[in-house]
């Protein structure tokens, strides 16, 4: 049983006109076995939340804490956070020319486990993981994400999720840009991961579409850098019908009131 706990998280980025606060006090607790969906309009800070937890250098944490079973994640480097059990599936997975998928996966697995995987079972595991997301094993010889289609990149993220098997997975708009078949394949991968029972998922999405395949235990509406409302999966259905407008207007009024 593990807990990923985010408390009063404030995050800024540097802009040409000085620092700009993106996250304005986020509180969120995810326990193993739970799937949380964070939904919100563009620019609400959803991705900032994901990248801040993972440790991207672009974001400066000005207040608050992120802990994993009490361990302060913010004191750890990016790779130490990953080795502590965190995984971020990115919206735009990065191309790494000249580094083969096979080499990348083996290096990552070795780093996470602290020892090299057994050669025989490892090749089989990789092939099986790729097969489950309908990726040809030929991809193992290609450079990481280079020349992959949008859908192939996302499926490659799921292959990594399954092979590295972290305690907590943050999925940043993994559904964006996917056609219906790819969406189903990717969702099934996430469901296999959660079905282990002791893994936590933070699913960040703009659309409700993916929630037809992945059933969250909790839904959080994210607007203007903080959580505006929380509920169960019924909240997602309401968002599907009503959209984010109500929350956006309310946030604007709050901001205007604060400015006076």
């Amino acid at each position: 049983m593990s807990t990923l706990e985010i408390r009063d998280l404030h995050v800024s980025v540097q802009t040409e006109t000085g620092p700009k606060e993106i996250l304005k006090g986020v509180d969120l607790t995810i326990r193993s076995g739970e799937t949380h969906a964070i939904m919100g309009p563009n620019g609400s800070g959803k991705s900032t939340l994901a990248y801040s937890i993972a440790g991207h250098p672009k974001y400066t944490i000005t207040r608050g804490s992120v802990t994993l079973d009490g361990q302060d994640l913010l004191q750890l480097s990016v790779d130490e956070r990953a080795r502590a059990g965190l995984f971020l599936a990115m919206q735009y997975p990065v191309e790494v020319p000249g580094v083969s998928v096979a080499n990348f996966l083996r290096t990552a697995k070795t780093a996470i486990d602290g020892e090299a995987p057994k050669l025989r079972t490892w090749v089989r595991d990789v092939n099986a993981a790729m097969d489950r997301v309908d990726m040809d094993s030929e991809f193992a010889n290609r450079s990481v994400n280079e020349g992959f289609s949008g859908g192939e990149k996302k499926r490659h993220e799921i292959v990594q999720l399954e092979l590295l098997n972290p305690r907590f997975a943050i999925l940043d708009e993994t559904d964006s840009g996917l056609d219906i078949d790819a969406l189903r394949i990717v969702s099934e991968g996430v469901n296999r991961f959660s079905a282990q029972g002791d893994r936590g998922v933070l699913l960040i999405t703009h659309y409700t579409r993916i929630l037809r395949y992945i059933k969250p235990d909790y839904v959080h509406v994210f607007v203007a850098g903080r959580i505006a409302e929380q509920g169960g999966s019924e909240l997602a259905e309401r968002l599907e019908a009503e959209g984010y407008d109500r929350y956006v207007q309310a946030a604007k009024q709050t901001a205007a009131a604060g400015a006076e």
């Binding site: 440790g55 790779d79 995984f87 990115m90 790494v96 990348f104 290096t107 780093a111």
Partner: peptide, 17 residues
Amino acid sequence: FYLRSRGIDEAEARRLV
């Protein structure tokens, strides 16, 4: 960042790149 977010330490990530 991508490589390190998979647990690969900085030196190894630079070497890979």
